[in-house]
Nucleic acid binder design. Structure first.
Lengths: 145, 145
DNA sequence: TCTAACGTTAACGTCAACGTTAACTTTTGC
DNA sequence: GCAAAAGTTAACGTTGACGTTAACGTTAGA
């Protein structure tokens, strides 16, 4: 593993070092390994995660707390995968998976609603654009006469 | 015109009265007429506007300042429409319209980029969903055996 | 080897976007 | 006609999401 220092990560992501530590503090990214002297050593996976978080934050307008819910699902899933499952625990696992499925379905619905509204918004702007181009056409004609 | 009081507007939009006054203060909505005693009297148009603003804020994750830019374009356009235009001013108007067109085009691009990223995000969630349903299928089979 | 550049924690500062409260006037139902 | 409900301005409080600074330890290169 290449040992990425926090400043490398900051530069690649376009975040500040403070923000990266803050996200770790909130639990948005897993705590990275440390060097002998206590320096944070990141991996590529951290960068992926950070970029996903930035997307959710900037593009979807999610709060960090909301993003934490999304992250939690993935984490939860990874955990389930790791565990060795005894026969008599299968039912419990299934119940957990169904819970997660419910959450994920709601998340998908949320995103779909956002997508719908965003398309509405796009149409609003298109209408304005039409008004402008119509105006341009009109004045262009007046100029000719 | 029906005279809507601020509380009516608040209830229909799901905003607080404070927020509505705040948006007026920022210039996000035009100042409504006032009653004899200074009470704000709103119209349907205000409600439309407020709903658009909420969309931009919640769904697109725009800051109020950014929304102000969007609003400004429409306002600007309305203004241009009202004005009587002398022959020798036609060129100036055309220039203004072209400026607005450029802004609107950039806004459309922004929204399209957001749409693209939101679709990406949707796919991420779908992938997780698949992992979950696969897991459920797998454990269901194990149960049978 | 030593110093400049970079890292660490911890605490306080800031800004947007409202919420809350106070002190007051207007409107409405009986 | 008068209390209660709803409106007004103005000022201060709060919360989320970091920025900034201080005080200090670590690491890399000449």
């Amino acid at each position: 593993m290449e040992h990425l220092k926090i400043d490398d990560v900051a530069k690649e992501c376009g975040l500040t070092k403070r923000t990266i530590r803050y996200y770790e503090e909130l639990g948005l990214i897993p705590p990275p390994e440390r060097s002998e002297g206590g320096m944070r050593l990141y991996t590529r996976t951290h960068i992926e995660r950070l970029k996903q978080i930035m997307n959710a934050r900037d593009v979807l307008g999610f709060s960090l707390q909301e993003i934490l819910d999304f992250v939690a699902v993935g984490e939860n899933l990874d955990e389930l995968k790791e565990q060795y499952v005894k026969i008599e625990e299968v039912d419990a696992k299934l119940a957990q998976l169904r819970d997660i499925e419910a959450i994920v379905s709601r998340q998908l619905d949320m995103v779909d609603q956002k997508l719908a509204k965003m398309n509405e918004f796009r149409k609003d702007i298109e209408r304005i654009q039409k008004r402008v181009t119509d105006g341009i056409a009109k004045f262009s004609k007046e100029k000719e006469s």
